[in-house]
């Protein structure tokens, strides 16, 4: 198996006023295709920074990152947006659905930016919503859905453009434990189907469900319990 995500000597520093904050300090790691990996650390550990670098929302200050073989370092905004659109499916803690759009339109959003014609967008989004068990909630707006259903819409949205990596940031953090458990079941099922999943969490018991745990603290990754 080849590494779909590769980081070599990656650092990310922020300048806040006069202070320089080392959010990530010389991180190197590789994540295999079709793996289910947890990045685990307390808040302020740098795991969000790591997630945004893997998710192409940001570029490193130094070092190189390759996503599915493409180096993000020298990319401009347009190229990064293109890469996010094609390679990454995001699932956020607070679902991040657009309140004015119904489930179908929310799930179809990545296809809009991929330039897919409207009819095909609808078809693919509907297929994906059925896949996550929301067949009878297509026309509901987020405010009409439960937390678990919202997260399922978000997962459908993450999967709709068939990305190389599913990147989930505390996806069960805003859910009660039984709903959270259902969502985890869904992730496991997706993993078994062959999706590469990167899971960012502070919760050790959730991390233990994953195939591999990358602990992170103070901007450095610790021992790798793979």
């Amino acid at each position: 198996m080849s590494a779909i995500i590769e980081l070599e000597g990656v650092s990310r520093t922020y300048v806040v006023g006069d202070a320089v904050v080392h959010a990530l300090d010389d991180v190197s790691l590789g994540i295999e295709e079709r793996s289910f990996t947890a990045i685990m650390g307390p808040s302020g550990s740098g795991k969000s920074t790591l997630m945004s670098l893997i998710g192409c929302l940001d570029v490193p200050t130094s070092g190189t990152i390759r996503i599915d073989g493409e180096e993000t370092g020298g990319m401009n905004e347009e190229e990064l947006a293109f890469l996010r659109n094609r390679k990454i499916g995001f699932v956020f803690q607070h679902f991040s659905l657009l309140p004015k759009l119904n489930a179908l339109d929310n799930a179809a959003l990545p296809l809009l930016y991929a330039g897919v014609p409207v009819r095909e967008r609808r078809e693919r989004a509907e297929e994906m919503l059925c896949r996550v068990g929301l067949k009878d909630r297509l026309r509901h707006r987020p405010s009409e859905l439960s937390g678990g259903q919202k997260q399922r819409v978000a997962i459908a949205r993450a999967l709709v453009n068939n990305p190389a990596i599913l990147l989930a940031d505390e996806p069960t953090g805003a859910l009660d434990s039984s709903t959270g458990h259902e969502v985890m079941e869904l992730f496991h099922a997706l993993h078994e189907e062959g999706h590469t999943i990167v899971f960012v969490t502070h919760d050790r018991s959730l991390a233990l469900e994953c195939g591999r745990i990358i602990p992170i603290k103070d901007g450095r990754i610790g021992y790798d319990a793979s």
Binding site: L57, N85, L97
Partner: peptide, 16 residues
């Protein structure tokens, strides 16, 4: 701003 962030994360480039 949040909506813009979501759209960008989903692949909207600055032009969009």
């Amino acid at each position: 701003t949040g909506e813009i962030g979501i759209r960008k994360a989903l692949g909207a480039d600055p032009r969009a």
